[in-house]
Amino acid sequence: MVELVLDPSIRDWVLIPIVVIMFLMGILRNNVTKMMRKDTAPNPTQILQNNQLMRARRLRANACYIPAASFHTRRKVFCHKDDGVLMQKHEAPNPMSMMQDPNVMMNMMQGNFAMMVPQMVMMGIVNYFFSGFVLGKIPFPLTPSFKGMLQRGINLTTLDTAYVTSMSWYFLVMFGMRGLYSIVLGANAETDDTKIMQQQMGMGGQPGQQPDMNKIFAAEAENLQIVEHVWFVDAAEERMLRGGAAAPKTAGRLKKD
């Protein structure tokens, strides 16, 4: 099979410029996002609830390290029927109120905006300036159905699919640039498209919705109530004197879960 010889000036005027443009664009976008981002004050009741929950979980996990009496006092504070911390009724978050909160919406919009606009602009630029010729060859064969995507603007049915145009190079650079950004801009840069996408996916299409604390609290209270207190420290002397008898130790460890 005959190799196609590509004009070296394609490398100088297309391949490298695309990389440079995308790199600069990434930096610009990073700074713009930083400027647009607003620090929203955390909701105090939410912090309080999270802290209480954490404390209850901690008590459950590390109960084996405090004496039984102390554990039971603490459990009573959390799980008392009427005035236990975990038994309080909280206002269930209303998903609609989140949507009506203009700040939340604005932040979401800005986030999406900052991600989408540069990408669309870049795609437009690349498509407009650098189309109509082959830019490079990828080192593995592909089926002809990729032709429409990889060889945009070249209508040659006989051309091997391994030869690609600038659009493919654009995508390759877009996803490959992350490592470079994290070196240049620091580890927690804002340019990571895939991360943003993942975040939005993970929230199940309803970004920013709060979980229902009532359910979580009730579940935690239940968990705490079924904990059987085993005092790990109780056997500490035995372990010390007998050179660490294994049995009580593992029992204590198991209780942690």
Partner: peptide
């Protein structure tokens, strides 16, 4: 006795 246990545990 509790104190003794916790000293032992700290030593552990």
């Amino acid at each position: 006795r509790i104190a003794r246990k916790y000293y032992a545990h700290a030593l552990d």
